[in-house]
Amino acid sequence: MRQLPETVAVLEVRRAVRAWLGEYGRGGPRMVAVALSGGADSLALTAAAVIEADVVDALIVDHQLQAGSDQVAADAAAAALALGCRSARVLAVQVGAAGGMEAAARRARYAALDAARDGLPVLLGHTLDDQAETVLLGLARGSGGRSIQGMAAYAEPWGRPLLEVRRAVTRQVCAELGLRPHEDPHNSSPEFTRVRLRAEVLPLLEEVLGGGVAGALARTAEQLRADGAVLDALAEELLEAARRGGEHVGAGSESAGAVSDGATLSVETLATAPVALRRRALRSWLLAGGAKALTDKHLRAVDALVTSWRGQGGVAVGGGSPGTRLVAAREHGRLTLRRQ
Rank of each mutant, 00 (worst) to 15 (best):
P203A: 10
A155K: 04
P161R: 09
G215E: 09
Q172V: 02
G228A: 07
L163E: 07
Q172N: 07
G178L: 05
R243Q: 14
H182Y: 15
P181M: 14
G178V: 05
L162Q: 10
R244S: 13
T193I: 04
R160I: 00
L238A: 07
G210S: 10
V165Y: 03
S188R: 14
T170Q: 02
N187I: 02
P157I: 04
Y154I: 00
W158K: 00
T193H: 08
E236R: 13
A226Q: 08
R194Q: 03
V165G: 06
A241L: 01
V213H: 09
D232G: 04
V230W: 04
C174Q: 01
A155D: 14
A226T: 11
E206F: 02
E164W: 05
E183N: 08
P161Y: 09
E207G: 13
A199H: 15
E164M: 03
A235W: 01
A229M: 04
A233E: 15
G159N: 11
A226H: 06
V213N: 08
A155P: 00
T193Y: 01
H182S: 12
A152P: 03
V169G: 11
P161N: 07
A155S: 13
E236C: 08
Q172F: 02
N187R: 15
L177P: 01
G210Y: 06
P185S: 05
E237R: 12
M151R: 06
A235R: 01
T220W: 08
A218V: 03
D184K: 07
A153I: 00
A235N: 00
A241R: 06
E200H: 12
L177K: 05
A153Q: 09
G178I: 08
R166G: 14
L224R: 05
R167A: 14
G228M: 02
A241Y: 01
V213S: 06
V208S: 10
G159M: 06
A233W: 12
